[in-house]
Design a binder for these strands. Structure first.
Lengths: 156, 156
DNA sequence: ATTTGACCTCAACTTTAGTTGAGGTTGTTC
DNA sequence: GAACAACCTCAACTAAAGTTGAGGTCAAAT
């Protein structure tokens, strides 16, 4: 009985969360959030959707792609409203990711410092260029995650 | 007389640089590199294209969008082959960018640490959520650079 | 002289993260 | 009970950074 009275309308969620309604639809299509419907087919959201959206936005700031965020959200217990502990667990995952991203950028910075000195940017000699650690995002294109449909999440 | 003998074929540039030919075409269309043509309309590249591509890939690793890289490359002196000093100047710009990116991620990490403790992720109270500094990329969509054509560069 | 591999252009497609618009329905208020 | 805001779906579009494919040409080796 987690008090489901008084669901939120799309407009309310949009203004409270700062996320456009079109984005809410998009998140729902991709299994990141869910909603109930009124008799007239309009969406109504449980209040905890705000926290989910909070998690989504924060994760995006960390640089996590939506597909991964969806996978992470899918590990939340079904049935009950997530607790603070649940959210803390998910956040800790990103903490690790963040650390990794930071240290990747730091080593890139060190390399760059070396290369500013030599002005090389030469393709074979320079540490900077050789992408042995092709972890660093190569932009958006052509990152095939898993073969098949994106945003996995055992389709609602 | 910077010795223009012995130009490189597309295939040579591709294997030496590790960049696909389709990407070379793409870079050229967007003014990042240029080429000469044989009588039979095939591309031939001056050797310094390798260094340009090096710069492009390194810049991308730093996280700079191609449009900005193009703008940066456009500041190279026309006519003469760029010197080490030229490349060093460009690299220094990215160094600043890199620092900014790193410190943004670091403060995000600090915020995240605070929030793991409270498990909040609440939309109004949490420092993490409020995007007062909407510097952090919000993904790819809808970043209108300059109104108009992307990849500015006085389009030949 | 022919074959083969490398190359050309152009259009269309890919991915991520959404937005925009058209055309139609609900829900609330006067 | 009519007006009007808010909502619905669906298709198409945007942006970045390319890739893929079709249909045709060039260059080098045999």
């Amino acid at each position: 009985m987690t008090s489901t009275r008084h669901l939120l309308t799309p407009g309310e969620v949009a203004t409270r969360s700062g996320v456009a309604i079109s984005a809410l639809h998009f998140y729902e299509r991709n299994g990141l959030i869910e909603s109930e419907r009124t008799a007239g087919n309009q969406r109504r959201y449980r209040r905890d959707v705000l926290r989910r959206i909070g998690f989504i936005r924060v994760s995006q700031r960390v640089g996590i792609p939506l597909a991964d965020i969806a996978a992470s959200l899918a590990t939340l217990p079904e049935g009950r409203t997530p607790t603070k502990q649940d959210w803390a667990r998910l956040s800790r995952t990103w903490r690790t990711e963040l650390d990794a991203r930071i240290s990747r950028l730091e080593s890139l910075r060190d390399d760059l410092d070396g290369c500013i000195g030599c002005g090389c940017l030469s393709l074979r000699s320079c540490t900077l260029y050789n992408p042995d650690d092709v972890l660093a995002g190569r932009g958006t294109g052509a990152i095939r995650l898993d073969r098949g449909q994106a945003y996995g999440g055992r389709g609602r």
